[in-house]
Amino acid sequence: MNLTLKVWRQKNANDKGGFVTYKADSISQDMSFLEMLDVVNEGLTKKGEDPIHFDHDCREGICGMCSLYINGRPHGPKRAITTCQLHMRSFKDGETITIEPWRATAFPVIKDLAVDRSAFDRIQQAGGYVSVNTGGIPDANEIPIPKTIADEAFNSATCIQCGACVAACKNASASLFVSAKISQLALLPQGQPERYRRVQAMVAQMDAEGFGSCTNTGACEIECPKEISLTNINRMRRDYFNAKFFKEEEID
């Protein structure tokens, strides 16, 4: 199949950037979207042109490194997959595909389609952990956890930190990501001692990074490659209000 690509090119964070149109010819339907870009890049390299930079690593939908806003949707038109799992058979011959980077103040463009998502790391550094040191831990089976709770915590824990929720949200809100991380530990007994500290610290960091606020459009849930549910956001709110209005713990 032959395609026209409209790709956002931007040399570095300070460059203004703009769209450049490329032809992608004789593309196989079996290629993944990133393999299609590989082919385009191989051609560009041969011509001595700078290849299109995009983030990617595992190419099996788990590392969360790939991104791309494809034809108006993060990770492209299909549900519950990442860009690296998207195949060209999801497109029509002759189609024009617009490829943009994630757009958010908190995700500045580094080059072309690659953005800086370290804001997500910083949010987790603010409190997304259980403070236990290595060693001296009681036996794993000393803490029974009801299966339903464990499963629900697992659902939250499947987040791959790709940032599609932010990209999809019209407000560039990071609520789905942050709440999934908070929920996982808030649900489990291990996370209880720091539950209310954690939620306050992580929300504060989320705000400091310049993400927008959640207006419950639900776009994040639909576009999340791991189908993390909106329920997490409501859990985060409950814990946050609970912490701020009813708990003694104050964080600075």
Partner: peptide, 15 residues
């Protein structure tokens, strides 16, 4: 939070 918008958005697909 998003000073530079998208050229193409398909909001109707998700909200």
């Amino acid at each position: 939070a998003r000073p530079v918008g998208y050229a193409v958005t398909k909001g109707e697909a998700n909200s």
